[in-house]
Structures are given as structure tokens and as C-alpha cells.
Design a protein around this nucleic acid. Structure first.
Lengths: 197, 197
DNA sequence: GTCTATAACGAGATAGAC
DNA sequence: GTCTATCTCGTTATAGAC
């Protein structure tokens, strides 16, 4: 995938992607100037346009894919932490709440801000955001299926689980409080437990 | 409130606020250039800085308050549409889904995009967003209280109702589908109905 | 109150040496 | 692959006539 180099050392391309993902996680696409981006990545403008001829947009698509995968890993960790699917979903909410507070309310969803800025005006970015959302839903759906829920219930509940976690994450970030996420986790667990297996 | 004038005719100040609210609803704060704003409002740059010496930011705060109130009215309409609180919340989700599709997936939440852009970098805007969120939560909380739920359940459920509707609205907008909102409405109704009155 | 012209600045992107 | 200098354009904001 990446150019050859010392194991563990991040190449310029990877540093650009990770830095872009982090900055877009904080404030979205439009609020992230490329100059600040390359500076924080320890790179230069020349490197950016060498690796991403499409410029800021092309880098943003890669950053959304990276952030989406990072988020998916946290999701998988939480979903695997309990045998009961309802408790597992609640654990995800707790993980998100901890990450948010520990980052001084900065590390919210790596996709949502950019998604709302891009909708209807930057199709490439919007598509990358939708891909990330769909991936996350699929992970929850598979976990519910494995937990014994019907195909229809698993699909529908997975949609609401992701929607609710997203909305609660936003509320928690803007209000600088873990409460929205912790309540969302508790309520989602109760909702899931109310379905037959 | 507004300058005197023919009843029903909107003054320049009001047109600026409404236009800013609509554009920020579509793409957020950073994606809304003041030039386009004044053009669509049928105003000029001179008028903007006459009514809002604080410039774009001051106008944005007024626009968030306006959009927050508009959203609150739709919320109140839905919440008053059924005697059962659970059915009333589901009705809100249906109203949001209809407004979103009828606007070709443009008219989402008037606050969320700006909220995520502003968090941690534009305190005035962030505060205006949080005020709007808190107002919406209060409307739901009062409706649940009036429906016979305990003070604690009403408060906690109101938080999750707003979080979930917000997240589902985002998912619906990005995915151009009513499904996230309709499922959220159904699941929220089920969750609310599972609490004792 | 409204208008146009423009200032002052920062944005994304490019050129070309190394 | 990396670097610096620079180009071009769009942005917010201001000036000053009307």
C-alpha cells in the first residue's frame, strides 16, 4: 500500500491523511486550510500535490476513508466487549463518551461535520461519508444477527443505533457533556432488549 | 421588533436573517459566502453591515436563533398532533422526513452543520447552537411530563429523542432517504412506550 | 438605508529548483 | 520526493457617494 520504508515509521502520505482526518474530525472540511494541514503533518505543499494531484478534495476523500476505518475499529471493539448485544451497544456509547471527554471534546465523529458540509455540493466527499456510515451500520447489523435477532430487526435497529450514536455524539460535543452519549447508550440497550430473539 | 412597514412585507433585516438561516441549514456557516447571501436576500453588502456591524458572525447568531425557533414550531406541531406522547414523537419524525424529501434533501436541521463547524473555535455560534438544542429538548420534556411520565424519565428521554432525531436527520440527508427518520420515529415511540406512566 | 467600488487578507493551487 | 516562492481567485469587510 505505502512506499517502502522503516517499519513503524509513517510516510508523508500517511501523515497527511491522518492529519487531515483529525482536523476534519474537529471542524469539518471547509474549516481546515491546507496550509495548516501540511504544517501539522510535518509536510509541505509540494508533497501534498505530489501524492494527491486532485488537491484538498482528493486528500479529504482518503481522510474520510481512514477516519471511517478508525471509527469502525472502535465500534468493533465495543461490540465485541459483551456477550449480550444490547450491553455491547451500550459499551460503544461509553467508549465514545470517554474518547470525547479525554480529547477535551474535540474528537467527535470523523465524518459528520464534513458530511453536512458536502451534501449536495461536493459529491465525492458526500459519497465517501455515506460509505463510512454504511460500513458502521453493517458492523452493528452483523453483531445483532450474530446475537440472534431477525434479519429485519437487525437491519432496522442497526440504522437507529448509528443514527442515535451520531446525534448523541454531536450533542455531547456541542454541549461539552457525556450525558447525551451515556443516555443514548442506556436507551439503545433498552430498545434492543425489547426485541425478540 | 422590526422597522415599521407594510404588514406582511419583510424588511431587509428579516430577509437577511431568513436567507442566512436557509443557506446555513443547507451547508453550514463556512460554506455560505456573504456575497451569495446578500444576493439571494435581495440586499447589498452595505445593508448587511448596517444591520449587523459584527458582520457575518453576528448575522449567523441571529440566523441560528431564527432557525431554532422555526424548528421548534415544527416540533410543537408534531408533538401536539397525537394524544399519546409516543405517537406524537413518531409524528415529528414523519414531519421531518416529509420536509426533507419535499426540499430535495436540502432542508435538514438548521443548526447541526454550523454547530459542528463552530465547536471550539467560534464560541458565539456554538452558544447559539446549544441554546437551540436546549430549547428543543425542553419542548419534548414538557410534552412527556404532560403525558404523565416522571420528571427523570421525561428529561432523559427528551435528550435521546432530540439526539436520535438529529442523527437520523443527518443520515437521511446524506443518504437521500427517508428511512433513517422513519425508523427513528418508530423506535423512539417503542422506547417511550416501554416506560411507565 | 442603500448602493458600488475596492481594500486587505487568506484560500487553494502551481512552478521550478534541488 | 521535497522545498520555497508565487500566482490567482474568492473571501470578509470597509469607504464614501447618494
Amino acid at each position: 500500500m505505502s512506499t517502502t520504508g522503516p517499519a513503524g515509521a509513517l510516510g508523508t502520505r500517511d501523515r497527511l491523511i491522518r492529519t487531515a482526518s483529525r482536523l476534519m474530525q474537529h471542524g469539518g472540511y471547509e474549516t481546515t486550510p491546507v496550509k495548516q494541514l501540511v504544517k501539522e503533518a510535518g509536510a509541505t505543499l509540494g508533497s501534498l500535490y505530489h501524492f494527491f494531484p486532485g488537491g484538498k478534495q482528493e486528500l479529504a476523500v482518503a481522510a474520510l476513508a481512514f477516519g471511517g476505518e478508525e471509527f469502525a475499529e472502535m465500534l468493533s471493539t465495543g461490540l465485541a466487549s459483551h456477550t449480550d448485544p444490547a450491553e455491547a451497544v451500550e459499551a460503544v456509547a461509553v467508549l465514545l463518551a470517554e474518547a470525547l471527554r479525554d480529547s477535551d471534546w474535540r474528537d467527535g465523529c470523523p465524518v459528520t461535520a464534513t458530511a453536512l458540509e458536502s451534501v449536495g455540493r461536493l459529491p465525492d466527499l458526500q459519497a465517501a461519508c455515506e460509505t463510512a456510515f454504511a460500513h458502521w451500520r453493517q458492523l452493528v447489523e452483523e453483531r445483532l444477527l450474530a446475537g440472534g435477532f431477525s434479519a429485519e430487526d437487525s437491519r432496522d435497529l442497526a440504522m437507529t443505533v448509528i443514527s442515535t450514536l451520531e446525534g448523541a455524539e454531536t450533542a455531547a460535543q456541542v454541549g461539552q457533556s457525556q450525558t447525551p452519549l451515556l443516555l443514548a447508550g442506556r436507551h439503545l440497550a433498552r430498545l434492543i432488549a425489547s426485541y425478540a430473539r
